[in-house]
Amino acid sequence: MNKTVVKTMEMLRLFVEHERLTLQQMVSLLQMPKTSVYRMAQSLLEMGFLQKIGDHYQLGLAFLSFGMLVAERLDLRQVALPVMRRIKEETKEAVNLVIRDGDEAIYIEKVETSEPVRVYTKVGRRAPLYAGACPRVLLTFMENEEQKRYIDHIELVAIAKNTIVDRQTLRNTIEQDRKRQYTVSYSELEDYSAAVAVPIFNYEGKVVAGLSIAGPEPRFSQEAVEHMVPILQRAAFEISKQLGFSRKG
């Protein structure tokens, strides 16, 4: 690797742990000649990667622009869509992506099945977090206190013949699903429909989306679900990694 680039990165990494540093502090931390550190610092100042206030250096505004670009370009739909298309080819079923919006889930992307018998779902559809595998995966992996508040206060309304409308049943279902790391539903949002879903996590380890396979109930036997779950889990982890998630800790 280019030594100048490596040394420059070492200098910038100092500011991960230190908000502000003097030139002498950088020299001590880097164990480099003062003239070399000064030249690198001046170059980074001119490019906007560092700024100087008095005798102290700190990260410059250029990083703000880069950070915003990274965030914009890591659009969840953009990251997920190629993976969703691959799931559809592998399972021949529809694939949905949902995020939370208050007390609801909203479908933000879908890949339709090519099968003649299908479950109709459109982008923009909303559903309560307690109903259906994909919305409920957001509730299942929500932080405990927030999850408890939601369950205690939400009105559970029947949407289809198997919608969960009992709080204790909902708690038990969530506990089971959290242990096995996926959710399944049959006729909760629409009669004779089924779905299996897994969570997608961000760099903080927080659930930010649900990824599901959905279709008519007859195609979602226990054997079929057991085949779909590892496919979904691998896909969700791939998307999560691109959002900065790591299994560490």
Score class of each variant (00 low, 15 high):
residue 94 A to T: 14
residue 90 E to N: 08
residue 77 R to P: 10
residue 81 L to N: 13
residue 78 Q to I: 14
residue 84 M to W: 06
residue 75 D to R: 12
residue 86 R to T: 07
residue 85 R to N: 10
residue 93 E to I: 11
residue 101 D to F: 01
residue 76 L to A: 06
residue 72 E to R: 15
residue 78 Q to M: 11
residue 90 E to R: 13
residue 103 D to N: 13
residue 101 D to E: 03
residue 88 K to P: 04
residue 82 P to L: 08
residue 89 E to I: 07
residue 103 D to P: 09
residue 104 E to M: 08
residue 86 R to N: 08
residue 68 M to C: 05
residue 92 K to D: 08
residue 82 P to Y: 13
residue 100 R to C: 00
residue 70 V to Q: 14
residue 105 A to F: 01
residue 105 A to V: 04
residue 68 M to K: 15
residue 76 L to N: 11
residue 69 L to S: 07
residue 81 L to E: 14
residue 99 I to Q: 06
residue 87 I to G: 05
residue 103 D to T: 12
residue 104 E to V: 05
residue 91 T to Y: 02
residue 86 R to Y: 00
residue 79 V to K: 05
residue 97 L to P: 10
residue 80 A to E: 06
residue 69 L to T: 06
residue 101 D to G: 01
residue 98 V to E: 06
residue 88 K to R: 15
residue 93 E to K: 15
residue 90 E to I: 10
residue 99 I to W: 03
residue 82 P to E: 08
residue 98 V to L: 10
residue 103 D to W: 04
residue 85 R to E: 11
residue 105 A to Q: 04
residue 103 D to S: 11
residue 78 Q to V: 14
residue 83 V to C: 05
residue 103 D to F: 04
residue 77 R to W: 01
residue 81 L to P: 14
residue 105 A to T: 05
residue 74 L to R: 14
residue 88 K to Q: 14
residue 89 E to V: 09
residue 82 P to C: 08
residue 100 R to E: 00
residue 97 L to K: 10
residue 72 E to Y: 10
residue 94 A to S: 15
residue 102 G to P: 14
residue 79 V to Y: 03
residue 92 K to R: 15
residue 82 P to Q: 09
residue 84 M to I: 09
residue 88 K to F: 00
residue 100 R to Y: 00
residue 72 E to V: 12
residue 89 E to W: 05
residue 79 V to N: 02
residue 104 E to T: 09
residue 91 T to D: 03
residue 80 A to G: 05
residue 103 D to R: 13
residue 97 L to Y: 05
residue 95 V to M: 04
residue 95 V to N: 02
residue 102 G to W: 03
residue 100 R to F: 00
residue 81 L to W: 14
residue 70 V to Y: 10
residue 68 M to G: 03
residue 83 V to W: 03
residue 75 D to Y: 10
residue 99 I to L: 03
residue 80 A to N: 06
residue 74 L to N: 12
residue 89 E to N: 12
residue 68 M to D: 09
residue 89 E to Q: 12
residue 90 E to Y: 01
residue 91 T to G: 04
residue 82 P to N: 10
residue 71 A to I: 13
residue 93 E to C: 10
residue 92 K to M: 08
residue 86 R to G: 01
residue 88 K to W: 00
residue 84 M to T: 08
residue 86 R to I: 02
residue 80 A to Y: 02
residue 90 E to F: 00
residue 102 G to C: 08
residue 96 N to L: 13
residue 85 R to S: 06
residue 85 R to A: 06
residue 93 E to N: 12
residue 82 P to V: 10
residue 80 A to F: 02
residue 94 A to F: 00
residue 82 P to G: 07
residue 83 V to L: 07
residue 76 L to W: 11
residue 68 M to W: 09
residue 71 A to D: 07
residue 95 V to C: 02
residue 71 A to P: 01
residue 99 I to V: 15
residue 70 V to R: 15
residue 95 V to I: 14
residue 99 I to H: 02
residue 69 L to D: 05
residue 100 R to T: 00
residue 97 L to H: 08
residue 102 G to K: 13
residue 73 R to G: 01
residue 85 R to Y: 04
residue 96 N to F: 03
residue 84 M to Q: 09
residue 78 Q to S: 12
residue 89 E to T: 12
residue 83 V to Y: 05
residue 95 V to G: 01
residue 91 T to A: 02
residue 98 V to F: 11
residue 69 L to W: 01
